[in-house]
């Protein structure tokens, strides 16, 4: 028995009600740089107006967190595209500064009751994984996003030779990141038979699932919304 009922988000709805239904929207709000205090009794439209956020982007992303996938062709304006990029870079901060350190901390706590040699290997696995993630996020922050911003902001033509961005590489990175995370979950759930404090095991796995959920949405936004839009702009300017 497992049912999730989630609302299709519309502009006149109250944000508070949606959060009662799906608390992960709080994380989405954080990626929009909004805290709990901005919710109050406000409708989505009010929240967006008060905080200068594109309503269309906010609604689409809220729906994404509720399980509805936007097509991407609803975004056209420069401001929308720029706010999507801002949203994505803010979620990078969450992965880097919060989620990964948190998971790393839980793994270290496993030493207390498990074979040190195995935990050491897991730490190594996780650290290697994390450095791959950092590398990818760094690539987005320092190459992809600045390139997207430049191409959206200006009408300058960029020659193919100068184009530092490859959509294929990008997608491949995402696949790697997701498959390693899948391996980690498999190891913990099916293979490792961890001993000791159960609450740490649960927190560790919850963290992994939370991270995975947000990463899924993150790459969905990039692969199915952002990159196709950038491609479209490139084509319209004859870059590709």
């Amino acid at each position: 028995m497992y049912t999730i009922q989630r609302t299709y988000v519309k502009h006149e709805m109250k944000m508070a009600g949606l959060i009662f239904e799906n608390p992960t929207l709080l994380l989405m709000m954080e990626h929009f740089d909004l805290g709990i205090s901005s919710i109050q009794d406000k409708s989505i439209q009010q929240i967006c107006t008060d905080n200068g956020i594109s309503l269309q982007v906010y609604i689409s992303f809220a729906n994404l967190y509720n399980g509805f996938i936007p097509t991407g062709d609803e975004f056209k304006s420069k401001d929308e595209l720029l706010s999507i990029i801002k949203f994505l870079s803010r979620s990078h901060q969450y992965y880097k500064n919060e989620k990964y350190p948190e998971i790393r901390g839980y793994i270290s706590q496993l030493y207390a009751n498990n074979e040190a040699e195995i935990i050491k290997l897991i730490e190594k696995f996780f650290d290697e994984y994390f450095s791959e993630v950092l590398e990818h996020l760094g690539y987005e922050d320092s190459i992809a996003f600045p390139y997207f911003n430049a191409i959206i902001e200006s009408s300058i033509r960029v020659s193919t030779a100068d184009n530092p961005f490859s959509a294929n590489d990008y997608r491949e990175h995402h696949t790697d990141i997701e498959s390693k995370l899948f391996e980690l979950k498999n190891l913990f759930i099916k293979h490792l038979s961890l001993k000791g404090d159960r609450s740490i095991h649960r927190k560790l796995l919850y963290s992994l699932f939370e991270l995975e959920h947000d990463l899924n949405i993150h790459s969905l936004i990039e692969d199915t919304i952002l990159v196709p839009l950038v491609r479209e702009i490139e084509r319209s300017r004859g870059i590709v």
Binding site: L121, K124, F125, E128, S179, K180, F182, E183, L184, K185, N186, L187, K190, H191
Partner: peptide, 9 residues
């Protein structure tokens, strides 16, 4: 079968 691909995993 294992859900694991990488060598370290």
């Amino acid at each position: 079968k294992t859900g694991i691909k990488s060598q370290s995993g």
